[in-house]
Simulated scan of single mutants.
Amino acid sequence: MQETRAYLELIHERGKKGLPVERVYRQLFNRNLYLTAYGKIYCNAGAMTPGITDETADGMSLEKIDAIIKVIRDERYQWTPVKRVYIPKQNGKKRH
């Protein structure tokens, strides 16, 4: 996991300086990157709320991560189209 944290810190530092990040695509093959992301998401209260699909954070597994990586590696990943919903706020504005 140290390698993943170091990479994320590098991205953060380059972002603060306004510098581009290169070779990002190959990081999508890094299983630890998904595990780190899952670790940050699963404890959120909204993580168990289904979105456009019925999937929630509790449905994640190493097998699912490996399947995602395989589909990306084979360049067969299909983005799921989503519908943007604006939620009304008490002050009359809308939240996206």
Rank of each mutant, 00 (worst) to 15 (best):
D54G: 15
I52N: 10
I68H: 04
K70T: 03
R73A: 08
T36Q: 14
I72P: 02
T56G: 15
M48G: 15
E63W: 02
P20N: 11
K64R: 15
I87A: 09
G15R: 06
R26E: 14
A37T: 01
P20L: 15
I87C: 01
Q78S: 08
L19E: 13
I65P: 00
H96F: 07
M60Q: 05
E3H: 10
D54T: 15
M1K: 09
D54P: 01
V85T: 08
V82M: 13
R31V: 06
G59P: 02
I41N: 02
I68C: 14
G39L: 04
Y77T: 00
R23Q: 10
A6P: 01
Q27C: 07
R5I: 02
G18P: 07
Y7L: 15
E63V: 07
R84Q: 11
E63R: 10
T49R: 14
G15P: 03
Q90V: 08
R95G: 02
P88H: 06
E3I: 00
T80I: 10
H96N: 13
T80H: 09
E13V: 05
D58E: 14
Y7C: 03
K16F: 06
Q78F: 06
Q2H: 07
N30C: 12
R31L: 09
Y38P: 03
G59W: 10
N32V: 04
A6N: 15
G39V: 00
K40R: 12
Y34I: 01
D74E: 11
K17D: 05
L28K: 06
L10S: 05
P20T: 10
I87P: 02
V85M: 12
A37P: 00
V21Y: 04
K16R: 11
R76P: 00
M1H: 04
R26Y: 03
E75W: 06
Y25M: 15
R26K: 07
K70C: 00
R95Q: 10
I11E: 04
K64E: 06
D66T: 03
V24T: 05
A67E: 09
L19D: 03
A45D: 08
K40S: 03
V85E: 08
I11N: 02
T80A: 07
